[in-house]
Structures are given as structure tokens and as C-alpha cells.
Design a protein around this nucleic acid. Structure first.
Lengths: 94, 94
DNA sequence: AATTTTGGTTTATAAAATAAACCAATTTAA
DNA sequence: TTAAATTGGTTTATTTTATAAACCAAAATT
């Protein structure tokens, strides 16, 4: 029987964010924005949701004088992503 | 670069429907309902969307005296599903 | 003959995604 | 030196989507 897909991950932008973050140690807001082609507003909202779920951490600091937001995936984020992929496989017949 | 996911297919229920239909020649409404665990209302709405997009055909008839709705995937549906799977692979790193 | 079940559709509500508006600080250009 | 534009975001409003609730006709059951 098909398993329920984690709705937090079954979102194009949030999935893209998590996918990106699994591949790097950390990433800046602006880097994620560029890679995902998302608008800043949408990205901000989705990052906050992932942070609230503890799938990622967000640290705000400065690079020189400009504000900088750095995101990292957590262990929870990684394992939920892996589970999601396994569940989705059955839908995709992979 | 990550490709845009077809929003018609990037929906848990519609993806489940299409996935089911790729595996069988045709399927009844009640069969799909049982397999997907969807409510009748939700299933009806999502089937209509897939029909409007010509991803499936819907034929209404009778089995004995009871109404019967039979769904089949179209060539468009199959090829869009395949494209979707290929695009999604990159997100999933498969 | 009233009640429940089957097989749905239609409509209303809740949740989600997206876009638009906004803000503070910084840099650039006149 | 001050006005305009850019950077790096957040907040709020709007649109879209998913889901649930209400409903309907016919059939079957009690």
C-alpha cells in the first residue's frame, strides 16, 4: 500500500531546499535563492517552516556589513528526506 | 539546474492515481478509492482535473443497475508521468 | 415503507504556495 | 551630499490547492 508522503517535504521548493542542503555543509540564503529560482519572500517562508520542524538550522550574522543567513540541514532533516524518498519510490515505481 | 515539476502530477493523490493507472489497463472509481484511501469527494475532484488535462479518460456506465466510472490513462498521461519521474529524480538524487 | 448503502458530484472550508508590499542598511551615481 | 538603486531579507495579502462536508439519486436491506 502506498505510504503517506510527508507534506512538509512534498513541496517543490522545500524539497529543492532540502535536496540542496544534503549536498553541502551549509548554504547562504542568496545561494539557495539563486539555485532554486525562488523569490525571496517565498524562500523566507519555506525556510522558516523547515526551521520550525527542525529539519534545518538558520543562523543570522553578517558578512562584512551585509546581513547573512546561513542554513544547514539537521540529522532530522536528513533522515526525513531519506524516508520521504523511500516512500515516494513506490509512487514512481523506482 | 532543477527542472520545474508538473504541478498537476506533484500532488499526492493525483500521483497515486496516475501511478495506479500505469499498472493496469483500466480501473473503477471504487477500486481507485480503495487503493488510494481517498474520500470519494476528493477523488472525484482530482479525477476530473486529470481528465481535463487529458491525462486520463473517464467513462460512465452501469454495472448491472449501479453506476460505474471507469478510468484509463492516456498516452499523454503516461508520457507526462515519465517526464515527471525523470525531473523528480534530480531532486531525490536517484 | 422507512433506513441504509452504493456510487458518486457539488459546494464550502482549511491549508498551502506565491506574490506583493514593505523595511533597514548599503552602495552607487548625480 | 543627497537622491536613487541595490542587497538581503520579513511580513502580509492574495491566489491556488487540497480536503472535507453536504448533498443527491438509485438500489438494497430490514
Amino acid at each position: 500500500m502506498l505510504k503517506k508522503l510527508n507534506p512538509l517535504l512534498h513541496s517543490e521548493l522545500r524539497l529543492a531546499i532540502i535536496s540542496l542542503l544534503t549536498a553541502v555543509e551549509k548554504a547562504e540564503f542568496t545561494y539557495i535563492k539563486e539555485k532554486t529560482q525562488a523569490t525571496a519572500g517565498n524562500l523566507s517562508v519555506q525556510l522558516t517552516k523547515l526551521e520550525n520542524a527542525k529539519y534545518i538550522t538558520i543562523e543570522k550574522g553578517f558578512k562584512g556589513k551585509m546581513p547573512q543567513t546561513i542554513c544547514k540541514i539537521t540529522k532530522t532533516g536528513i533522515s526525513e528526506f531519506e524516508k520521504y524518498v523511500e516512500n515516494l519510490r513506490e509512487y514512481l515505481r523506482l
